[in-house]
Design a protein around this nucleic acid. Structure first.
Lengths: 158, 158
DNA sequence: CTCTAATTAGTAATAGTTCCTATTAATGAT
DNA sequence: ATCATTAATAGGAACTATTACTAATTAGAG
């Protein structure tokens, strides 16, 4: 399924099946709850690990939208997302990219029925500094960025 | 400064000063470290609380980009952000919205020097369901979305 | 100057995710 | 089919980032 030496375990298969069955964008915990209905002893760590592996292999998509819980999405066709600022639900938007940005918000409102729409458009890529360093990946990108938080920061001083 | 009955404390003043001084998009902890240099007894909780109050009042901007730590931004003019997938730094993009989306990624590359650019464009607004319910805010939007996680989820069953 | 509610420091608690370890099981080789 | 190898697992501890709690302090109105 993924790269060689990636085994198709019963757990992994069920996680994929539940992701395919579901229409919305479940959190890791929601996937866990669904799979647990069919395989009670599955652990949350297993779900997290598999969701990471599946998204690293491009089979599913990891959504890091807003704060709080990460969500996962099995559809592979190109689309964007809209989130309700009250209930935090996430819907799909099949977006034609041949429009001007200024008209897109109007289209999104028509298609989704959302109101009071704002847009946070964020880009990601490899910065000039990292290009200089020969693009060496120290840890898995998108997975373990340098956080510089608390203990880490304190340890720098030693 | 903010609404009436919002006091300008020494801590709040220093937090704003350090945000103004800094060019990049510091995390709460980075702000804490800077302010601590001038007011050693300040606590991290105070920094978090003030960053929340300042962003709720529109004085600064909260960036929920990717996963991991939230960042804060004092500049008020309209711009978007680009994040390095390796080192997780965030840069500004002064973006002209009168372009087609498809051409924007090229522009972003030219302006920033980033390569391998991807775009995660996410919209937020009020979903049709929440519009029906008279737009009542149960908890502060963007701050405390319904998470439905773990203990919360378990407690639902009681 | 006094009063009082807003704010604070310090710390505990929480949420979401990752890591660790002994055990189990998927798959290639025999 | 059986074995051997090693990826993957369950369960739980640890970790990161943030929020909540509480008694003490303080900004600022009157």
């Amino acid at each position: 399924m993924c790269k060689t030496n990636t085994r198709l375990t019963k757990q992994r298969k069920l996680i994929l099946e539940e992701l395919e069955r579901v229409k919305d964008h479940p959190t890791a915990y929601e996937v866990y709850e669904r799979v647990r209905g069919r395989l009670p002893q599955i652990s949350l760590g297993t779900v997290y690990r598999n969701l990471d592996i599946l998204s690293a292999n491009g089979i599913i998509k990891r959504l890091d939208i807003g704060q709080g819980q990460r969500r996962f999405d099995i559809t592979t066709d190109d689309h964007k997302h809209i989130r309700c600022i009250f209930c935090n639900r996430i819907d799909d938007i099949p977006l034609n990219t041949y429009h001007q940005l200024t008209t897109i918000i109007g289209i999104v409102g028509d298609v989704t029925g959302y109101r009071g729409i704002g847009c946070s458009m964020d880009f990601h890529g490899i910065c000039p500094e990292c290009q200089k360093q020969g693009n060496r990946i120290h840890s898995s990108p998108e997975q373990k960025p340098d956080s510089g938080y608390m203990n880490n920061a304190k340890n720098k001083e030693e």
